[in-house]
Design a protein around this nucleic acid. Structure first.
Lengths: 407, 407
DNA sequence: GTCGTTTAGTTTATAATTTAAATTAAAAAA
DNA sequence: TTTTTTAATTTAAATTATAAACTAAACGAC
């Protein structure tokens, strides 16, 4: 009933302080014990003791002697980023992308594994296990340096149990990812929806840096949103928050696969953009797209439209601008409902770059109600293709820096 | 930068435990010390010590000897609800409603004060002060029994400073409510947006009970939402979250006062319903509304339409059903974006009761994507007219039960 | 009705930590 | 060289929770 009674104990007290110190080092490092004491308002002995523990675990190191400011030189502490590794898996519709990253989010190794069709739960899980083994290969001392495995996957994820409840693009249900990987690797495993992982990734290593209130939009085949509010990733009551692809924007618009009309996804997703281009060309609109796809209109995709637009094709530019307008309307609805500080746009459409971004920004500026709503920052993803995989890595980092397992 | 470093200390440890105990008593009381120890996993001496402190403050009392279950009878502890009072103010467009409530949310005294026009900041503040004085009159030992004053007000509220940044219906800016009331009454003051206060009120004392994930919709002149997620009230980056009145639903719909087209508010607010009725009657549609307003169509309001519908007037029923459909579409967008467990509908429109609720529920059931989205619970406000004022009271209660000022 | 058993709650002693004060370390400034 | 300043550690004290023992009070069995 009443969630989780948080009671105080010596353990908790110590754990809070240890995390506070660790996070100060991560955010402000290299930094001296004395400065940590000032920032945390803990006393020097407390800081020294906890720093000693953190040094013992290897998570931080003493780096160099800092400049004196009139007295003894401070010993600078920093995260021992290169020492540890995290594996991130991005389970998409067609492939698994695996990355091996250090604590800085620096990708040391990367590989992709295509998902065969048809696929079932066991085969997908085997493929994931195989991907992890491949990442671990050739790494020294892998058992002691590997902290965890994060998984970002499309569809509905029960994050409490690390289970994919439904993966529409693979048509799979109830995949026990966390349980299976834990059994195989006996290490920290976290599973999260892909867009939400993206949002975390952008917050830690991308354009979401330094923001507590962030929405990350993924526009590709579908449209989804990952929401970080007051510093916390939001899931919703049934892990289905962020389903903005089927936001009704035009009650009399084109019919969507979901049965309703005028969903954002039928107006502004990658396939929607491609469809629009085909229709217009079919109606006789001239476009260099025809040449780009060698005359076969069936080959037109979102990507080819971006390409044509980048080359100045007026039809493509106009289609992207129109899509940007629809996205802008959808984002304005989001801004009015949850008022984030920043919105980051990722996924395939973000490759269209400023071509679509400007249209989005203009629409929001024009439609938002208040000055502060108009000032919502709209940016493109910094992490691009790697956003979900790095986000998966971040799942583990959040855990690592949040609680610092007490000895 | 890094928000607020939460560091552990003896004080914090104790404070957490004291709150845990206090909240257990509130949620599960009357309850014995022994059971509190079991539920919190604290040891019996710790519980006894903290209970002693809480008894000293007067916030809890020993009530009766419970039934023995084979040994010594337990002494039951409960919140001393009748002992303390909180004042809640609901600052609307036309009047200030004031309530005096005990810790159970039971309203002991109620009064309204109409707001003269024109009004300015100082005059409004004086009126609020007057309302509070009126509430305190005739109460014994008021200084020691009064815990705080909560204020729920329409418009944009900076809750950190307790200031109304903008109150559109009164056309006032930057009203220093908290500062002014603190100076006058030297007591805990909290200020919050009206819909958000409503949401809190419903969560504590209304149909939001027991839910961690709740959206409360206020449909009257405008349409606003108060969002509680993962147990926490959400404000947005600029305190403007929940502005759903201007959610675009029909891109080619009627023009809204905000300049855009097809905003939810132009389709389903009280005035929108009234306008629709007038138009239809003007076009020759027969309706008992004409008699209800004595032939003067200018007198038609949302309320008269509900009344006519309740009497079975086909036009009114149809208009309400249509409005319900629009609201249902808006709510479906909200469900897909933030996936609350429950949505509570309050404000003037909720007086239409099941007439509109069914239409809303049907629309959501029809349009929601997944089974869990379809199962979102849609309910009418339980607190009705008093929702905001009681919500204002709740602002103080949240504070009281969250942190329990340490001695 | 006495005696053992069970449950409630308190007392006493101990342990885990943080905090405060004093001390050592090391460098810059005078 | 001496003094001052800043960094970090050591030592002692304070705060609070926990563990273990104890008292209180009721029930049930014989």
């Amino acid at each position: 009933m009443s969630k989780q009674m948080l009671t105080g104990s010596f353990q908790l007290m110590k754990s809070l302080n240890r995390s506070a110190i660790l996070n100060i080092i991560r955010e402000q490092g290299p930094i001296s014990r004395a400065d940590i004491a000032k920032l945390t308002k803990l006393t020097p002995p407390t800081v020294s003791n906890l720093v000693k523990e953190l040094l013992d675990t290897g998570i931080i190191i003493e780096t160099y002697q800092g400049e004196s400011s009139g007295g003894r030189k401070p010993t600078m502490l920093d995260i021992n980023s290169e020492r540890f590794y995290v594996i991130g898996l991005d389970i998409g519709s067609y492939q698994i992308k695996a990355v091996l990253a250090n604590l800085n989010g620096f990708i040391v190794k990367k590989a992709s594994f295509s998902i065969p069709t048809p696929i079932n739960n066991d085969r997908l899980l085997s493929l994931m296990i195989q991907a992890v083994h491949h990442m671990k290969e050739g790494i020294d001392d892998t058992e002691s340096r590997m902290i965890g495995i994060g998984v970002g996957m499309h569809g509905i994820i029960d994050v409490d149990n690390g289970e994919s409840l439904f993966a529409p693009n693979l048509n799979l249900y109830n995949i026990p990812i966390q349980k299976t990987l834990e059994k195989e690797f006996d290490i920290l495993i976290k599973v999260e929806n892909d867009v939400r992982a993206m949002a975390l990734g952008e917050r830690w290593f991308g354009n979401g840096h330094g923001t507590d209130s962030l929405v990350c939009i993924n526009i590709g085949r579908g449209i989804g949103a990952g929401i970080i509010m007051d510093g916390k990733l939001f899931h919703g009551h049934n892990f289905i928050s962020g389903e903005i692809g089927h936001m009704t924007i035009d009650i009399d618009g084109p019919k969507c696969s979901c049965g309703n009309y005028g969903c954002l996804q039928t107006l502004a997703s990658g396939p929607a953009i491609a469809r629009k281009a085909k229709t217009e060309i079919g109606l006789g609109h001239p476009s260099i797209l025809t040449q780009l796809v060698g005359g076969d209109l069936g080959n037109i995709t979102g990507e080819t439209v971006y390409e044509a637009a980048a080359q100045g094709d007026p039809l493509s530019v106009s289609i992207l601008s129109q899509a940007g307008r629809y996205i802008g309307i959808g984002l304005t609805n989001i801004i009015h409902l949850i008022n984030p500080k920043r919105i980051i746009i990722g996924g395939g459409v973000s490759n269209a770059g400023s071509l679509i971004l400007e249209s989005i920004q203009d629409t929001i500026y024009q439609r938002a109600l208040t000055a502060s709503a108009k000032q919502t920052e709209i940016m493109l993803s910094k992490l691009g293709e790697d956003a979900t995989a790095l986000g998966a890595v971040t799942l583990i980092l959040e855990e690592l820096f949040a609680t610092t397992s007490n000895a």
